[in-house]
Design a protein around this nucleic acid. Structure first.
Lengths: 206, 206
DNA sequence: GCAAACCTACCAACTAGTAGATAATATTCC
DNA sequence: GGAATATTATCTACTAGTTGGTAGGTTTGC
């Protein structure tokens, strides 16, 4: 765990080849982007030849599509867990923010962030999926914030959807700024400020 | 000018080759990223051969370095103009936000955003410059916000630097989210909300 | 004459992707 | 049960095109 060895949480050593490929591709895309990663990089990590990767994923585009689909499903499940779990809306948003920053220490961008930044270099099928990924974020945030407002745990002048969009933008931007500035604190700082503003004054009810 | 022709504000037709190359390279990097752009793409647009581009810029890395330097200088000058011009701090921040979104309609990311998203794929010399670019943003914002607070035009619980970082994150993230969602309004929405919160209550003094 | 700016023609390395062979493992038919 | 047949997952060897970059010659304007 210590030392320079990187965390392999995304890349199980025992998973079948296909899953390993998806995990490693996601890692590379989130680190360097779609354009910068290649099948050759995958062979280095997985230990099978390029031709064998093409057996599992006929094209790079198809591989990337599946990376997004798998990541989205995993993310949706994590959001559902948060929503089903204990805690009020502010607590759920804090969990969301932590989830959002997952991989930051491995220099990983959120997948949607990495893809959106080079959208013009991506095939159309990935535009659609990138957008869908963002919509998943916004829909969930809108729901949580909306419930929080209704329950008096949050208050926001512009309405739930406006706060949802602000939270997403803040985290998305924070992860970019913080990466370049090499400061994890910076990544959550904006979110924390916004959340603090959205909390009702201490002891307002109860 | 009408129809699908794209705006050539960044890419003067009459400028000397070198400037044209820098402008077109910036355009390509901001649209698709460093990894996805190549000298071949430049030859298409500029009309000289790949070898001739190497005459002006010996390596792709060097070209990109200069792109960032030129863009940063241009940006710094624009910020200085805003600072020297009329208007209070909120007005200056609105001008900054507009400047930040410059090129959005051409599907251009802010340069620092494009670079930070694929930092792991960039040579070290561009890490430094990306960071410096962000620092320029933060320093200017910190100064403007600080002056605005001192003058009673802005108020922010966390202090000027915190608001500066929040504004930057919000715009940076907004430009990513808005691009994927194809909504210019979304790009400025978060910023507008934050600025509204930072304005002192109407008629507080005067 | 000279230097800046450009060219043709190349290079080695890398890109995504294909063809076809080969093991090992299932599945089916008798 | 055992032979015949698919299927799965991998390999070697290849293609055509692109990448960043170089060597060396030519044009152009002072």
């Amino acid at each position: 765990m210590s030392g320079g060895a990187r965390d392999d949480s995304l890349r199980s050593m025992t998973a079948p080849t296909r899953s390993q490929l998806l995990a490693e591709a996601e890692y590379l895309i989130r680190r360097s982007g779609y354009s910068a990663f290649s099948y050759a990089h995958l062979t280095d990590k997985i230990g099978i030849t390029k031709a064998s990767i093409h057996y599992h994923f006929p094209t790079k585009q198809r591989l990337a599509e599946e990376v997004v689909e798998v990541a989205m499903a995993r993310f949706a499940a994590a959001l559902a867990d948060i929503e089903a779990g204990p805690g009020d809306a502010p607590a759920r948003l804090r969990q969301y923010a932590e989830l959002f920053l997952d991989g930051f220490d491995e220099q990983l961008r959120p997948l949607c962030c990495a893809l959106s930044a080079e959208l013009a270099a991506l095939p159309d099928s990935l535009h659609t999926r990138t957008r869908a990924y963002f919509e998943l974020h916004l829909a969930w945030l809108g729901r949580i914030v909306g419930a929080g407002c209704a329950a008096g745990q949050l208050r926001w002048a512009g309405g739930a959807d406006a706060l949802a969009a602000l939270i997403l933008s803040t985290l998305e931007g924070g992860s970019l700024v913080a990466r370049a500035m090499q400061s994890r604190a910076l990544a959550l700082d904006g979110f924390a400020q916004v959340l603090a503003l959205a909390l009702p004054p201490a002891g307002a009810d109860a």
